[in-house]
Every structure is written in structure tokens, then in C-alpha cells.
Design a protein around this nucleic acid. Sequence first.
DNA 1: CGTTGATTTGATCAGAGTCAATCCCGGTGG
DNA 2: CCACCGGGATTGACTCTGATCAAATCAACG
Lengths: 227, 227
Amino acid sequence: MSAFRLLSEPEAAALVALGRKVKSAEKGKCLLALDGVSDRTVLIHSGWAMIYRDLSDGRRQIMQFCLPGDLVDPCSLLLRRRDFSIAAISPLRYSEVTLDQLTSIIGEHPRLALPLLWNEARDIYLLRRHLLSIGRMTARERLSALLLELWERLSVSGYMTNGSFIMHANQQMLGDATGLSAIHVSRTLRKMEADKLIRRSGRNRISVDHDALQKQIPDLFAIKPRV
Amino acid sequence: MSAFRLLSEPEAAALVALGRKVKSAEKGKCLLALDGVSDRTVLIHSGWAMIYRDLSDGRRQIMQFCLPGDLVDPCSLLLRRRDFSIAAISPLRYSEVTLDQLTSIIGEHPRLALPLLWNEARDIYLLRRHLLSIGRMTARERLSALLLELWERLSVSGYMTNGSFIMHANQQMLGDATGLSAIHVSRTLRKMEADKLIRRSGRNRISVDHDALQKQIPDLFAIKPRV
DNA sequence: CGTTGATTTGATCAGAGTCAATCCCGGTGG
DNA sequence: CCACCGGGATTGACTCTGATCAAATCAACG
């Protein structure tokens, strides 16, 4: 949505129209289930959701957290079946976006393809970064990377109030996202707090020391759009 | 490319033209380095390449293997910097595709956006599957999943000769792809061979028992395009 | 207060990593 | 034809990160 400036009046209006029919969901509700026909995706208005995949033996992998403004992987609509589920992890306002809506919008306003593609590029970038994190990093590095990612994404959309934000994921979810057990997440966060990398207050407000976290991780750098 | 049938004569010709200027590379050569300006990507003609990311302390994560016919993540051209490197892991024939080429092709033949997007959707699907594998699976499951993926991708493009294919990745690379150490890869493959899940012959020919491997993994299913 | 769910802590265990030595095989040169 | 090389693969011994299990706190809430 950072490309909003570059759009004409009717183009912007068309994008906004995608979010006309607002639905809401309780924390924990599944918005779109695995295996359904892949004919619609989700645009997040407020609250957090997650894209995840359950295995039959109870293991779960969270692929990404969906934050306000995110339009979940529209390209996946080109596949027959959905290979992931989406569930709310906080009270949520969202709208459903169908493949038909997207194709007709792009038919009328071809330039709108650009922000959509940029959205897609960013998703892939985040997925690759996530892969690096899970595949080759230690517990502390993984959690640092995740907190940094959330920090970066939330701050561009104005959800950070002086260095802190509300963490809607509990430790089980942080574990399922980073490939760790909830218990190990607890231990690691505790140590990170002792080392003054993060500070927690209230039930789920967390403030992170961005520079210190960055130093935990070799090489990580942030994304920038081309224009 | 499976959508080739649906394209008109000139459309197909335009796609083919992307691969006009063929380059070749020795095994091990880096085609595109991390951090370069992200203005071109790679179309693989023959041989294997890999998309990976190195950390300064020597750790490496392979994000995906690029097989013949693959056009590496065109969406990434919309970002300023490349966040990954591409290197040949076998003798390679390929061509470079620039953002300008892609935009002009789509300008002239808008319908070509569809196969490109489908390509993108498949990449993301594979990335998510990879994430699930690395995040929540055991060593044996991860290797099974990787071998199955290669099996599936190579067989649609005709690189499987009665159940076997040439594995261009060595065990170090298999480890870097699955988040394991090369040594543990060796041990695990050895056990899998003892259990008749795979069989190796020559230096790098491998034949896999697809159904047996599938049974190693809970829930994995394969992708299908919508049309 | 009692209940419920999340977090924390301790004790123990195991899967995978590390280090070092050896093996295997294909390629090379004599 | 054979000895020699060298990189990858294998094996063994040991270590360590993170998983598991169980119990104890803690916080929010009716």
C-alpha cells in the first residue's frame, strides 16, 4: 500500500473497493481451511492472522503472520487447492477477495497489477528470510529475526508506539513459527529479556531494542521497494 | 510451461525469445550475487542451479534448487536489492532475463502474465512446503520430502529414467537445503538406503521409491494448477 | 476464591552437530 | 597397468542444543 501515492483517483478507489464487505472474526477462528477450493483469499483490516499448516500428528508450522494491510498471497488463487490454512490470532476485521474480483480489477486498471506484484515479491522475500532463519539459525537468532520482522512491518503501518507493540502470538505460536518448542521459546525470551534485548509489560506488550537485536544476527538486511 | 498449449503462436514465440541468448556456466560458478542490483533473473535451460544465502560465519541456506525450465522468481525484480545468490551446481546452460524484457513482453502479450504468475505461485508453494519441512520435520522426513519434490519436478519435465535421476547436489548441499549437517545427511541417507527407500548407483544416480517415501511423511500432497 | 490457560522452572533425554580419522572412487601421471 | 591424489562419503566418539515430561506459578476472569 506504500505505492498508494502513485495511483490515480479511480485506481485507488478500486483498491479500496476490495475491502468494502468487512467481516470480523474472533481470536482463534479459522478463516480459510486447508484443502478448500482455492477461490478466495483474505485482506486484513485490523488484527493479526496466521498462515499455517497442521500435520496429522499435531505438529504445526506457521508460515507467516498476517498484519493489518496484508493481502494474503493472491497468486495462490491460481492453484487448485489451498495448501495452507488461515486463522485469526486476535480479534480480526478482514474481507474476502475472490479471484474474479482481482481479475476484473486488473482488467479495468492494469496498473494495479504493480502493487499486487510488489506485495507478492515482499511475501516471497519474507518467506526466504524465514527459511534462512529456521534452517540455519539458533533459537536466539530465530526469535530475534522474528521480532525484528514484526518490528519492521508494524512500524511502517504505524502500529508501534515508542518502541513497543502488542504481540498477539503466544509462545506456542512463536514456537510454531520458528520451529522451536514453546518451552524453549519461554526460556530464550527470558534470557533475551535478562540481556535487555527486549522488555515485556502487561500481558502481551513487548518493546524491542532494534539495534541490539540486529546485532544478534549476522547479515540480515531489510527490504526496499524499487521505486 | 505446462500452459504452453493454451498460448497463441506469437505468444509462445515471445516466451521462447526470452531464452534466445544462451549462456553457459561451469559447475560452481555464481550466476548472480547477493546484493547486486536486482535487475535481471535467470532462466534455466539445462543443468541445476541453486538459490541460496550465505551468512558471514559460513552457514548457508539453500532456498531452492532450480531445474531445467525454471524462471527464477521474476517478482524479485521489483525489489531494489537481490536478497539471495544463484550459483550453478552442475554444468549449466541458461539465459538472463531482465525486468525490461519482462515488462515489454507483458505489454505486448498481456496473456503471458498468466503463466508467469503461475510460475510464481508454484515457487511460493514450494517455499511454504520447504518451510514446513525444515521447521517441523525430522531429518529423515526432510530428506524424503526433498527427494519427493525433486522426483515430482524432474518427472514432469522428463528427466526421470525409470524411477531414477541424477542428483547434482552433493551431501553438503542437501544439508544446506534441509537445515542439517552434511554428516547427518550421510547417516540418514544410508539408513534410508538400508530401508529400501532409495537406491544409489554410480557417483550420483539415485532412484527413489516414491510411494514408500510418501509414507514417511504425514500429510504431504502435491500441487495442481487450476486449469 | 476456584478455574482456566499461558508461562516458567527443573530434570532428563535424544536428535543432530562437531571433530577427527578412514574409506572409496574416479582421475592423473608415470 | 599401476601407484598416487584428492574430494566427497562414511564411521566413530563425544558434545550440545533444544525437546520432552512434569510440576509449580501466574494472571485474568467469572
